[in-house]
Computed example of a mutant assay.
Amino acid sequence: MDPWIELDEDALRQYIDAKTVFEAWESARAKAAEVRGGMLWRTTKGREYLIRTGVDNKQKSLDFKRWMASTAERDPLKVSRDRLQASIVEELANRFRLGV
């Protein structure tokens, strides 16, 4: 007796669909794990810092205002991309701060 069972077309299609959905779910779960945590603003010694918090309560200062000042040394395309990225980060941080 053959250990393999041949699948008919419907079963094969269902297997392919299920495998595709599972792989997409795994990919989405991995991407979501990368961005777990939150963000907050903290003022220390008169300077405002954007802080990223992790699920393990670790905190890392992103200090994007100083980072933005250093982008002038880069090429123009990268500068505009970095500014757009920083404005998105600032908008998300503002929404997080306001609870939107």
Rank of each mutant, 00 (worst) to 15 (best):
A32T: 14
R42H: 04
P3F: 02
Q85C: 14
R97M: 03
D63I: 02
L84F: 12
T44I: 15
K45E: 10
A28T: 10
A11Q: 06
V100W: 03
A28I: 02
W67T: 10
K65L: 08
E26Q: 15
T44N: 14
S27E: 13
Y15I: 07
K19F: 07
Q14W: 14
R13E: 05
R83D: 03
L50F: 02
Q59R: 09
I5N: 13
R13K: 14
K78N: 15
R95I: 01
D10E: 10
R81F: 04
K45G: 10
R29I: 14
D82G: 04
A24F: 10
D56Y: 09
N57R: 12
F22Y: 12
D63C: 02
D17H: 11
D8P: 02
M1Q: 11
A72F: 10
Q59F: 00
A69Y: 05
M39Y: 04
V89H: 02
R81H: 11
A33P: 12
V89T: 04
V55Q: 01
G37N: 13
E26T: 11
E23D: 09
L84N: 14
E23N: 07
K78E: 15
L40N: 00
R97Y: 01
W4S: 11
N94E: 12
T20A: 13
L84T: 14
D82N: 02
E9Q: 07
T53M: 03
G99D: 02
W25F: 08
D2N: 11
R83K: 13
R81E: 07
A32N: 12
D10K: 11
G54V: 08
F96C: 10
A33Q: 14
T20R: 15
E91P: 14
E48A: 12
D75F: 09
F96E: 07
K45A: 12
D8G: 06
E34L: 06
L50K: 02
K78W: 14
D63Y: 03
D8A: 00
L50I: 08
R83G: 03
W41T: 01
L98E: 03
S70Q: 06
E6D: 08
I88N: 13
T53H: 00
A24W: 09
E23H: 04
I5M: 08
D8V: 09
E9S: 03
L40H: 05
R66Y: 03
I16C: 06
W41P: 01
A24S: 08
T53W: 00
Q85K: 13
L98P: 02
S80W: 04
K65R: 09
A33V: 11
R97C: 04
A86K: 03
I5L: 15
E90D: 12
V21L: 13
V21R: 10
D63N: 06
S61A: 11
K78F: 15
L40S: 10
G37W: 03
I16M: 04
I51P: 00
I5P: 10
A28N: 08
E34Q: 13
D2W: 05
L40R: 05
I51M: 06
P76E: 00
P76N: 02
G37I: 06
E9N: 05
R42Y: 00
